[in-house]
Structures are given as structure tokens and as C-alpha cells.
Design a protein around this nucleic acid. Structure first.
Lengths: 336, 336
DNA sequence: AACAGCATTGGCAGCGCTGCCAACTTATAA
DNA sequence: TTATAAGTTGGCAGCGCTGCCAATGCTGTT
């Protein structure tokens, strides 16, 4: 049953058709459909009857052009492969959809240049607002945003200068707190296991924070390893094996995220390495699956959903530029 | 540094401004920017110079209205909490973005009525195409789609009647193959562990297929359990505990998806239940993390990314209505 | 010298709607 | 009764762009 074939013979029902059938003016139809201005109940019924008789679907493109404001909100994220960003989208789209907004998304693959392109093409739709990940953007991106006048929320980072709203937490502090936590538990031979992904500035800041935290205690990392992107449990497993082969006497490993840490945990399970006695494992993000491990993963739970939600809320409320520190929660777990 | 404040003092640069500065007509500017029609190199340079001098960003709303075609593609998915749908989005957006299309997304929470609302509001933007999950939609959804004339791709299911393109695989067959696999390995006391989510028709079809597969072997399920949504490792853990408490002599459990199955595996680890000797575990989706477990999870790997990619490809190519069976891959793993 | 053919260009209607304003009706106050 | 306010309604310009068509200037031909 092919309903739609190549040609689009549908002649498009317009507001004029509805007005004619209902025997009212176009602006009356418009008012009824947008519940704006005033109209009698009788008129409303006539209009709604005509609308459903014709199967009229308002053309928001025309509406947006006429009113010079759209109900589009653009979200530009680095990736969809990591559950972090879908979580942000979830939080944002719940808020957005319940207010009748439409989400337009773009994926940058952690490349600023790609982000710039996406910003340009999304701004062409004159969105009501823009949600970006992180605080690092090209100069041209900033210039386009400023010139367009759209409101912006930057999320999941707090370490740097924001454009407008900023909703997130300090990645640097998260890394530093992890170091303090591990050092506080007596660890001295710590390693960092990350991935090679230069565009991931948030991971970089955590890493820097971690090193700073070690330095506070007069320590430096016993080893460090960057495995090829993308992050995955398998990558964590292999990465940990590599680290331990090179530096067998490690007593703690800080993984760039939970996916990797879970893989590391599996390596320990398979190799009979006692966690945390022999080796402490620490992740980042607080994924659900990490908490369901036989030993709940030590990690930092990040408010991803909430960040999306709060950012959307600020934008919808047209609040003055605001910085919201959503914080994070260190989950001691049982692997450190 | 607040760049944007409440008012939008930006007077908006239009094509007329560019035309004036470049000393050419508006249609010439339009032609240059869209690389359509013909124009001299000199003219192009003048126009581009004016564009960057003014920081002109074309208004696609106006463009779409004038040309009565937009470069928006709408994707409506049940959820973003499960990595399945982000994977689909990834596949689709790579294809879409590389062709200069913009993705508009909506999340239905597995509710047909919600899907209907989203379809209505997204059709108001006159998208070029629409990607939906599954084949189940309300009559009004179908009617709106037919009336609008947009091309549609329905993905991740093949069991039923499609509207236009259909890209996916048979969920029923996946469930049935799982039953055959487990029965073929000598299992006789099988249970199903799902979640209470009536709108998840794909899970329902797998479940039905599973029962059909058991029936082929003259078996019926030894037990079944539906835990409250959402699915998660923790839910799988608890669900398996519940099943085993009620029916201790189970020899295999089919989980609605890998998230749940991984939780079940953790339960076995924690309780010292030997997998697969004492109990076989089987999941669905083929998540990466399941394959990194000490024993790789037995599961069915589904082509989620590919489904998004193929669907987008068909739509962009304006292909005649096509049904693509992407198939799936049964991964024997080590837990069954 | 006149003309067809082509590349290049500008003018302008119109895409479908909203915002504004004026016109009208009815209710209420003076 | 007349003036004033409030509630309804329709007309129409115009949002910024594209598509169509006509105009222009060249080139190469007869």
C-alpha cells in the first residue's frame, strides 16, 4: 500500500480555505487556532469544524515568517554514542515538548569546526534558543550567535567564560575530587585511563583536575594511557590490561568515564584482581549499569538529565543570563 | 559578559541589504548563495564580500516558504533512555547532515497518542520526510501523513503493514530464533523476563515470537515476569531474583533486552549461579558492554545505526516505497 | 548589418500566515 | 436617549525569500 508516491499532488489546504468554508475571515481562523485575541464560542466551533473537515494543518513556516519567531529550539551535542548526551536531550525535550517547542538537533563529533557549521545552518532557521555542550566554541561561532541575538545555554561545564546561560558543574573539580578521594583512601600509585579525543574538552578538564588533585598531595600519576576513541567497556578492559602490564604496582585507576571503568572491572573479574583491595577503580557519570555491578562502581554521578531540563527551563522563561551550578555527587561505591 | 539580553535589538540583515551593498539584484544574491542559475565570477565575489561584511545569515524560514520545500527531516522515537534510539538517530543524522538536512526530533514515551501529537506538530513544519519507529500508529496519524504527502520510513520492525518505506527486521522472528537457539541447546525450563510497557510493540512481538518458538518444540514457558519500566540492569537483577525465587528450577531466561540481561548476569555472579551450566541467559540488542562481560552475553545484535542510515538514504534518494530487511545476528556468546 | 542564441541580470508576484487597525455590534453608564 | 466601553470580526500589508519572466549585452552567424 503505497500512499505517497513521487509527486506531491496534495494541493495544500490553507487558512483561506478554512476561512471560506467556515464563513469567517482569515484572521479569525488564525485567532481561534492560536487561542489568541477574542472570538465567540459559535465562531470557534464553525472554525474547528471546518479545520477537521478539511484536515487543515497550519503551516508553521508561514507562521514563523509572519510573526518572526519560531518555536524551534536547537540542540547541538558532540555525540549520541555516549548516553550522556541522549540524557541531556531527554531532559531538554521533556521541558521543550511540554511547552510546544520543537527540538532540532545536530551532532558535532567533538569537532569545533563541525559545531560552527551546525550553528550556522541551525541559525538559518531562526530558532528561539540554542543549547550547546561546553564552553569552547570558535570565534566565528560566537560571532554568529551574537549577531543572531538568540539566547544560548551552554551545559555540562562551568570552567570558563559563558556566552549567556551556563548550566553544569566544574569538570576540573570533579577530577580533583576524584584524586582527593582516592588519595584519602590511601592510594599512592594512581593512573589515568582516557581516550584519544582532542575535542573532548570536558574529559581534558577532568584529567587536569585529577592531576591537580594529585599534586596537592605531592603525587604525580604513576602511569597514564590514552586508548583510541570511542570509549567503550572493551576499550576500558584493554586499556587497563595495558596499564597493568606496563606498571604492575598501580593501586588505583581513574577512568575517563563509567563505560571504560566497567570494562576495567570486567578485566579484574576475569583476571582475579581483587577490587578494591589490590586495585581501586573510579569512573565518571554514574551510569545505572555501573551501580548494578556485583560491586557498585565508585564514580561521580552527573546531573545530565537535569542539566538539559534546567537549560531548557531558563531559555523558555527568557531568564536573564544565569549560571547554574548543578553540582555532582561523588558515589563512593565499592570499587575504591 | 552578557551578549544577549531580553530585547533583540538586532534588526536582521536581509537579502535586500546584501543586494544593495553588493550593487546587484536580490535574485542574483539568491542565485549566488544557492549556487543555482548562472552568474559571473565577479558578481559572486561582490556578493560573497557583502555577505561576510554584513554577517548575513539566510533566513531558511522565508526560503522554505517561498520554495514550498524545507530541508527538515523529522524523527520521532519512543525513547532516548535506551541507547537503541540514539543509535538510530546517529545513523540517520550522519546521512542527513552530510546532505545538509536538519533533524527535528520528538520523543513519544512509547505512547501512540503522544506520537500522534508529535506528528501533527512536526508536519506543521512541512518536513521533507519523516522517520518513525515501528509500524503501529493511530488512524489519525496515518491520515495526517497521507494528507500531507510527506515520505515516511518506519524502522526496526517488519511485522505488519508499512506506510511507505520500511527498514528493519522481524522482531517476531528474533524472539522465535531465540527460543529455537535455547531449546536447541537443551534448555527446557525457560522463562521470559520483560518490562511493563504496553506501548513497546516490538518487545511484545519478540515475546510472542519466543512463545511461538517454544510451542514449536512443544514447550510452554516455565515462568514469566514483567517488572515495572524502565528497563535497566537493576531491574534485570531484581526480576531474575524474583523468577528464581518463584521457579527455582529454571534453566534459561530470555530477557527483553541486554540491559536487563546484564543485570541478570550480575545477579548470577553475586549469587554464585553458574552461567550457562546452571542457567542460560539471553538478551537482545547486542550492546557493546554485554560483549565485554567476563562471559560475552548471548544475544541478538540489531542493526540500529544501519536502520537509521538506510532509512535516511531511501528518503533522501526519493526512492519508491521500499521494504528493507536489515536482518539481525544471533550472537551465541557464552551465557547460553 | 541584422539576427539568433546564450549568459547574465533585475523586477516582482506570491508562498501562507500574523499583526495591526478599523469597523461593527452589543452591553453598560450617564 | 446618548455616550462610552468591551467584545468581535475582517481586511490587508508585509515577514524574507524564490521562481518566473523579461531585459540586457555579447558572441558568432548569415
Amino acid at each position: 500500500m503505497v500512499i505517497n508516491d513521487r509527486e506531491r499532488p496534495v494541493p495544500a489546504v490553507t487558512i483561506a480555505d478554512v476561512a471560506r468554508l467556515a464563513g469567517v475571515g482569515e484572521s479569525t481562523v488564525s485567532r481561534v487556532l492560536r487561542r489568541s485575541g477574542s472570538y465567540s464560542e459559535e465562531t470557534r466551533d464553525k472554525v474547528l469544524r471546518a479545520v477537521s473537515a478539511l484536515g487543515y494543518v497550519p503551516n508553521r513556516i508561514a507562521g514563523a515568517l509572519a510573526s518572526t519567531e519560531s518555536d524551534l529550539v536547537a540542540l547541538i551535542v558532540p555525540s549520541l554514542a555516549n548516553i550522556v548526551f541522549p540524557d541531556v536531550l531527554r531532559g531538554a525535550s521533556v521541558a521543550l515538548e511540554s511547552s510546544g517547542f520543537q527540538s532540532v538537533i545536530g551532532v558535532t563529533d567533538y569537532e569545533e569546526a563541525r559545531e560552527e557549521d551546525l550553528i550556522a545552518s541551525v541559525l538559518a532557521w531562526r530558532p528561539r534558543a540554542l543549547i550547546l555542550a561546553g564552553l569552547e566554541h570558535t570565534d566565528r561561532s560566537r560571532a554568529m550567535i551574537a549577531a543572531s541575538g538568540v539566547r544560548v545555554a551552554e551545559i555540562l561545564d562551568l570552567d570558563g567564560q559563558g556566552i549567556d546561560h551556563v548550566v553544569g558543574f566544574s569538570q576540573h573539580a570533579a577530577g580533583r575530587d576524584t584524586a582527593r578521594h582516592l588519595v584519602g583512601r590511601g592510594r599512592r600509585r594512581l593512573a589515568y585511563l582516557g581516550i584519544r579525543l582532542p575535542g573532548d574538552s570536558r574529559a581534558r578538564k577532568r584529567h587536569e583536575g585529577f592531576l591537580a588533585g594529585l599534586a596537592e598531595a605531592g603525587l604525580s600519576p604513576a602511569d597514564q594511557e590514552l586508548v583510541p576513541a570511542p570509549s567503550s567497556a572493551e576499550a576500558g578492559r584493554i586499556g587497563l590490561a595495558t596499564l597493568l602490564a606496563r606498571t604492575p604496582d598501580l593501586d588505583a585507576v581513574y577512568f575517563v568515564n563509567d563505560d571504560m571503568a566497567i570494562g576495567g572491572y570486567f578485566h579484574c573479574l576475569a583476571e582475579g584482581i581483587t577490587v578494591p583491595d589490590r586495585l581501586a577503580l573510579f569512573g565518571f557519570n554514574g551510569l545505572e549499569v555501573g551501580q548494578a555491578l556485583p560491586q557498585p562502581l565508585s564514580t561521580i554521578r552527573t546531573p545530565r538529565y537535569r542539566a538539559g531540563e534546567v537549560a531548557a527551563g531558563l531559555l523558555l522563561a527568557q531568564a536573564p543570563a544565569t549560571v547554574v551550578d548543578t553540582g555532582y555527587e561523588l558515589v563512593p561505591g565499592a570499587t575504591s
